[in-house]
């Protein structure tokens, strides 16, 4: 990667992180804590929605967020040709 590609790679990584972390906060702190009371008035499949987000939905969302991150970063690595260069590096 040359200097310009490096900058681009990093900028795209940061943008992906920002999007995913915003969803992370919105679901856990937003839906699970700050707006839990109004959301509890909505009941879906017998679950009050706020309670569901706090005990199930947030965990499932976290899992989905990491899955999207892994998938997008894989694509990004391929695009910039750093996916095949991986080698074990450990200090002696």
């Amino acid at each position: 990667m040359d200097e310009r590609q490096r900058r681009e790679y990093w900028r795209r990584n940061l943008r992906l992180m920002a999007i995913l972390l915003t969803i992370w906060a919105a679901v856990s702190f937003g839906a699970g804590i700050w707006f839990v009371e109004p959301l509890n008035n909505i009941v879906i499949a017998d679950f009050p929605l706020g309670f569901w987000f706090a005990q199930q939905g947030s965990i499932l969302t976290f899992l989905a967020l990491i899955a999207v991150y892994v998938w997008r970063m894989d694509k990004l690595d391929k695009e910039y040709g750093v996916d095949e260069l991986e080698e074990e590096v450990h200090h002696s």
Partner: peptide, 25 residues
Amino acid sequence: NGYDGSVYLMGWTGGYVLLALLLAP
């Protein structure tokens, strides 16, 4: 008493998003 235990459920799983995105790689 139910809902308030969610702090452990969310807290002990949400950290993995931070680990995956900010630290692990």
